[in-house]
Nucleic acid binder design. Structure first.
Lengths: 237, 237
DNA sequence: TTCGCGTTAATTGTCTGACATTTATGAGGG
DNA sequence: CCCTCATAAATGTCAGACAATTAACGCGAA
């Protein structure tokens, strides 16, 4: 049944249509997290297509991590709970792809990253907890090791800023920000830091932790501007 | 053959493996935009699997808009150019899903949105062009129509803020921001604006355009804080 | 009773071969 | 020169089969 698609458009790619229908069912709440979809055979019969087509549709949904599948007697396709963690990974991956494949220059990426992060400053200052400060100080200690490779230094930098945005206590915010920061990591990885550059970054990081501890958002904003300029200088040298 | 998968892990879901392999080829540059992949038959032979499995892998990639397919003699699967527009749609969709399915409360979403947008203020003030101001003023005119439904009012609001972030002139930034703003649109759509609320929003919008025209980023930031508070008040009434 | 164990059924994962549909290309005739 | 038609290559779809996995059931033994 239900092959009377109300849309008279070109019906190429049945699997896309079916995937979209199921997707809508998830969106509008007909299917909620952990619900089990009908079996592939039932779906194929319900939509009037072959099982192969249904499977292609399900793979599409799986690729967007909308569903997961389990084999066996009680198996089937289940609606995934959309965790922030999942969405974060997905967005970071998209961001990485976009930035590497479009040859975004590092200045643009830096500007974007620090602009976004700047927006978190006041909220982070207001809501930060002790463990956020601890995490950031821990990363600073790592960054002080002169033996650290540029790549590891960069990774630690990402962790530092991740803790900073987590300090806002707003999951939507930290999820968006973290994805953005991680998305430009490949670009940041191409930076080569001289020791002098590292020292400058580290002292700014320390000042930022202090500002965060004292809950002075405005100072944090200023420090972020300095950090942006410092990073841009490193990039252009 | 290359079925000598170096990974001895549980090899369930061959289609996922193959999709991942091709994905890596795109990531590392072995395949670049508009390259044509081998035909399904060739891929199935190359990876030692059936054509059905290859097709499932390709559908996964298509779902992530990494490839497109064309039928016919010169058809096949082609690597997609990753446009900001594509990535934007994808991220907005992910954001919508995440926010609706996790029952994020409107206060959290608002806070996130305005915090992110606030980060753009200074950059937008610096780089804005005349056509950005025009677009924003056009939306303000729409918003003044008292016959406008709440939903249309909200859509116009999204367009207004989209123009604002575009004014930064930074594609990475506007892409991230626009996705975030559109992601919380479903939530904003649930708001009911009294006329008094609309008037308050509109005058703030007008003040924001003026600040943007005068290139006074700091004032723009303050106005955004007001707008955030105003929106929160509307939400909580 | 309760534990253990094989059987069974349901479901996804994979393969094979076929046919339908779309589309560029080239040959042939007017 | 242009139109038409056959052809080939590729994706889209289908049907049917078998393999692999897994929970649940039933049954016998301790």
């Amino acid at each position: 049944m239900s092959d009377n698609s109300s849309s008279p458009e070109k019906h190429t790619d049945l699997s896309a249509d079916i995937a979209e229908r199921i997707r809508q069912d998830i969106l509008n709440g007909s299917l909620v997290a952990d619900d089990r979809l009908p079996s592939e055979s039932e779906l194929s019969e319900a939509h009037g297509v072959s099982r192969a087509t249904v499977r292609e549709a399900l793979k599409r949904l799986a690729a967007q991590s909308l569903i997961r599948t389990k084999r066996g007697a009680t198996g089937g396709a289940f609606v995934n709970r959309q965790t922030f963690e999942d969405a974060y990974a997905q967005m970071a991956s998209t961001a990485k792809l976009l930035i590497t494949l479009n040859e975004v220059d590092i200045a643009t990426a830096c500007q974007a990253r620090f602009a976004l992060e700047r927006g978190c400053a006041r909220l982070a200052a207001k809501n930060r907890q002790e463990h956020h400060l601890d995490a950031m100080r821990h990363e600073i200690d790592r960054q002080k090791d002169p033996e650290l490779s540029d790549e590891d230094f960069c990774a630690s930098d990402v962790a530092f800023h991740r803790a900073l945005v987590d300090a806002t206590g707003n999951p939507v915010l930290s999820w968006q920000l973290a994805a953005a920061v991680e998305g430009i990591e490949p670009l940041m990885n191409m930076l080569t830091y001289r020791q002098r550059d590292r020292d400058a970054v580290i002292s700014l990081h320390e000042a930022m932790v202090d500002a965060l501890e004292a809950r002075v958002g405005s100072r944090l904003e200023i420090l972020m501007d300095y950090l942006r300029d410092q990073t841009l200088r490193t990039a252009l040298s």
